[in-house]
């Protein structure tokens, strides 16, 4: 039982890491910390929930796949939710962030993201009330996998999803033209423009990717925990901590940072109780800012 926290931490870390990729890319490429990123997560979860309902009303009840708690409608709806949330991020940028960015006051954009976060979160509360909801209320049986650790089928599949997304992101950032251009913009926007990189396209890609991954993280939280309007806000501090710990702009760093934060939070549950989880993220954040503000894989700002 004692080692169970490793698995719990891995799962918590996956959720944080998926969200932190978006935070770190937005920060590196658009140069601001997006306080609305947690709410993308919640919007992703709710939009997926809505799509599952839509599919359900179109084709009737679908039997779950094998031992899982969900069937193909959730997979399809999850993809739809990723597209929706990516587009939501694009819309928000077009309506708000892009206009403020054009004035060149970085910190005003942060403030706008704070206002947008408040509006987005309370729109969810308006539409769905603050009471939690679930994709499925079925109880899953956790199977032992050795060392006293147990894992449910849902957890296995969603960890697999995280792995696929993270490897996919890494390949995209390393081998595709878009990924390399994103790196170039994050390292030196002026030079990137000089060599003919289409900045607007890179900005759009950043929002689409960030929104989609946030939605995937929201789906994961929704399936394994619950769906609430506040689910994103509660993840915001761990996501920022993960992005800064990993080094701003580094995708592997964000994932590794997420895992470190997730494991520390899960370990702390045994020591100080589950209610202090976010405080653990804060302590790590302050320690990183004091000792190594550039993070694990970060480079000095220029």
């Amino acid at each position: 039982m004692a080692l169970q926290f490793l698995l719990n931490g891995l799962i918590e870390g996956s959720m944080i890491g998926l969200g932190a990729i978006g935070v770190t890319l937005t920060y590196a490429i658009l140069r601001f910390s997006n306080f609305a990123h947690g709410d993308f997560m919640a919007w992703g979860a709710y939009s997926t929930l809505m799509l599952v309902g839509l599919i359900g009303s179109a084709v009737g009840t679908v039997a779950p796949i094998g031992p899982l708690s969900f069937g193909w409608p959730l997979i399809l709806a999850g993809l739809g939710g990723m597209v929706f949330t990516g587009c939501l991020a694009l819309l928000l940028d077009w309506l708000l962030f892009a206009r403020l960015r054009a004035r060149g006051q970085a910190i005003v954009v942060v403030m706008a993201s704070f206002g947008a976060s408040m509006a987005l979160r309370n729109l969810l509360e308006f539409a769905f009330t603050s009471s939690p909801t679930y994709f499925s209320r079925k109880i899953q049986i956790a199977r032992p996998i050795g060392l006293g650790i147990r894992i449910t089928p849902d957890q296995t599949v969603l960890l697999g999803m995280t792995l696929v997304l993270v490897v996919g992101m890494h390949l995209l950032m390393t081998y595709s033209r878009t990924g390399r251009e994103m790196k170039a913009v994050s390292q030196n926007p002026a030079l990137a423009r000089v060599v003919g990189i289409d900045l607007d396209r890179i900005v759009r890609m950043t929002w689409l990717i960030g929104g989609a991954l946030a939605s995937a993280a929201g789906l994961m939280v929704g399936v394994l925990v619950q769906i609430r309007p506040l689910m994103g806000l509660d993840m915001l501090l761990p996501m920022f901590a993960a992005a800064i710990l990993g080094g701003i702009g580094s995708v592997p760093g964000a994932v590794l940072g997420g895992l470190v934060i997730g494991l520390s939070q899960a370990a702390s549950v045994q020591l100080v109780g589950a209610e202090w989880r976010q405080a653990v993220a804060f302590v790590i954040l302050v320690a990183v800012l004091l000792v190594r503000p550039t993070g694990l894989f970060g480079v000095q700002e220029r």
């Binding site: 601001f32 910390s33 976010q278 800012l289």
Partner: peptide, 16 residues
Amino acid sequence: LKADYLAISTFGVAVV
């Protein structure tokens, strides 16, 4: 550090 880090830290202070 960068201005954003103050914002994130104050958010953390409020959460804690």
